[in-house]
Design a protein around this nucleic acid. Structure first.
Length: 504
RNA sequence: GCGGCCGUAGCCUAGCCCGGUAUGGCGCCGGCCCCCCGCGCCGGAGGACCCGGGUUCGAAUCCCGGCGGCCGCACCA
């Protein structure tokens, strides 16, 4: 492990090798926005594709949708985002700190429910609320909203205001009834979606960790509220041992998670229902599948104060980053029937569905992955030093480049053959070709960007048409005849655990 | 958003605090070596120093503003 790996090192590495670039960099960059470079774009696709395969295509009970980014404004009234996203900020005139006006008023014993700026201003004066840090005087409240506003149509009027979605989930709820009829699925079933979301964060930071534009991969899994513990799939994950940090332990000041199987956790009532436990398990299995070490993953329950307005119970799936400790990369929430109930209320449409002869408004379990955070965790997890040099030990399933092809020397006989092999491989796998510098340097450069296999054309190739195949993590080599090369690569990549030094 | 530190070629870095047109490394380009694991040999191209303004005969170097980065505070539905 590279202990010295800092976020700055990783950021610089990602820019240097073309995973990510600060967006609008030639103009100085835009805070909270990053563009994917060539390697990042490939990495993103691999992760996205595998997620979609694992959670949608492979399953019989989940279908996908792809919703709009600009959404009907009423959506966010119903979801509660306008309310709870629209807050007032007051600034201390002495020390300059910002505070949420509603928090200060609540501390002062005021019951805060949808106040206007004038009311907040009046209450602050009446109650004599001052800066909790230094006692300084507070500014007039300034509204801020975490949603990006835009205007639909030619006029910028209040009526034409719309928002860029701050979460993909709502599009699933809006389409719930249509999907239900069109797909002819019965409860329990899930709707998955991948897409961009936008949050006008006050202070984006930490490279990919807090962005203003990012991508979510989400499932809303709908269950009959009376059958939340009726989960026939539970056996798939029951024996998985997880590191579980409950709200209760946190409230006692304990940082050490329990090591417990999901079945035990459910039996002890630590998880809201069996379906909730199941989706925690499935999530972890997928993270492991793309190569993230479960040793560095824990499942932390939200304590009451951090629970979202819609949630019955939420678990953060956290990764232990070497440079910033435990941070959320995914959330698995029990949203109850909050969203469907609210949309039913605001739209006047009946969103209940049939199950066993009764009409029910389903409850929802929501696994919600932040793509960029998954990528950050995958990169941090894969970044290792092997014999003193950086190697990105990405699982071949997500590695942006699968194969590198080199001529042993930069001579026409070798380069001609090497390019021939390169083009043959490229038909099947993402591949790069390199003839510059020494063979050692080329191996190391390929290792650095996580290429699992390197193929070299040498003197022997010209005699018998065999090439060497070198393994990234062990540096071992085998010889393969070019006629069997593609098949051999497939075999190796599909059984990668035999060829890696990684414990996972 | 506030405070501290910072912003030099694709990347890292010296110089900046004692103002006078910029140091080194990596990478890159060309050539030599049938070179299997990053220090091989020869040659070469890249920067007016984040942007804008000011002070000055003259600024990367001082001052102001903006943008961006890191750390801390706040925020993180």
């Amino acid at each position: 492990m590279l202990q010295a790996l800092t976020l700055e090192d990783l950021t610089s590495f990602c820019i240097r090798r073309g995973f990510f670039f600060p967006s609008g960099r030639i103009y100085g960059g835009l805070r909270g926005f990053f563009d994917y470079g060539p390697l990042g774009a490939e990495l993103r696709r691999e992760i996205l594709d595998d997620w979609w395969y694992y959670f949608v295509r492979r399953r019989e009970d989940v279908v996908g949708i792809h919703g709009c980014i600009i959404t009907h404004p009423r959506t966010w009234e119903a979801s509660g985002h306008l309310e709870s996203f629209f807050d007032y900020l007051v600034t201390c005139s002495r020390c300059g700190r910002d505070f949420r006006a509603d928090h200060l008023l609540e501390d002062a014993g005021v019951k805060v429910v949808e106040l206007t700026a004038e009311e907040i201003s009046r209450l602050i004066r009446e109650k004599g609320v001052r800066c909790p840090e230094c006692g300084g005087e507070l500014s007039e409240p300034v509204p801020f909203n975490l949603m990006f506003t835009t205007y639909v149509g030619p006029k910028r009027t209040r009526a034409s205001e719309a928002y860029l979605r701050p979460e993909t989930a709502q599009l699933i709820f809006l389409n719930f009834k249509d999907v239900y009829y069109a797909s002819r699925l019965k409860l329990p079933f899930g709707i998955a979606q991948v897409g961009k979301v936008f949050r006008n964060e006050i202070s984006p930071r930490n490279f990919l960790f807090r962005l203003r534009e990012f991508e979510q991969m989400e499932i809303e899994y709908f269950v009959n509220p009376r059958k939340m513990d009726d989960c026939p799939l539970f056996k798939d994950v029951a024996d998985m041992e997880v590191q579980l940090l409950t709200a209760e332990r946190q409230e006692k000041g304990l940082e050490e998670p329990l090591r417990i199987t999901l079945e035990e956790a459910w039996e002890e009532g630590l998880i809201s229902c069996k379906w909730h436990a199941y989706w925690i398990g499935e999530s972890l299995r997928w993270l492991e599948r793309i190569g993230i070490s479960l040793e560095r993953i824990r499942v932390r329950e939200h304590v009451k104060t951090e629970l979202a307005h819609y949630a019955i119970q939420t678990f953060d799936i956290e990764y232990n980053f070497p440079f910033m400790g435990w941070k959320e990369i995914e959330g698995v929430s029990n949203r109850g029937d909050y969203d469907l109930r609210r949309h039913q209320q605001y739209s006047g449409k009946d969103l209940a569905v049939e199950d066993d002869g009764e009409k029910v408004l389903p409850h929802v379990i929501e696994p919600s992955f932040g793509l960029e955070r998954i990528i950050l965790a995958a990169l941090a997890d894969a970044y290792t030093l092997i014999k003193g040099r950086p190697v990105l030990s990405l699982h071949p399933r997500i590695a942006p480049v699968k194969v590198a092809v080199f001529p042993i020397v930069n001579k026409p006989d070798f380069t001609r053959k090497a390019r021939e092999v390169y083009h043959m491989v490229k038909e099947h796998y993402t591949a790069i070709y390199d003839e510059k510098g020494t063979i050692g340097k080329r191996y190391f450069k390929a290792d650095e960007i996580g290429v699992p296999l390197a193929i070299t054309i040498d003197g022997k190739t010209l005699e018998d048409d065999t090439v060497t195949v070198r393994f990234r993590d062990t540096r071992e080599q085998i010889r393969v005849h070019t006629s069997q090369l593609i098949q051999k690569i497939r075999e190796i990549l599909e059984n990668w655990h035999h060829h890696t030094t990684r414990k996972t």
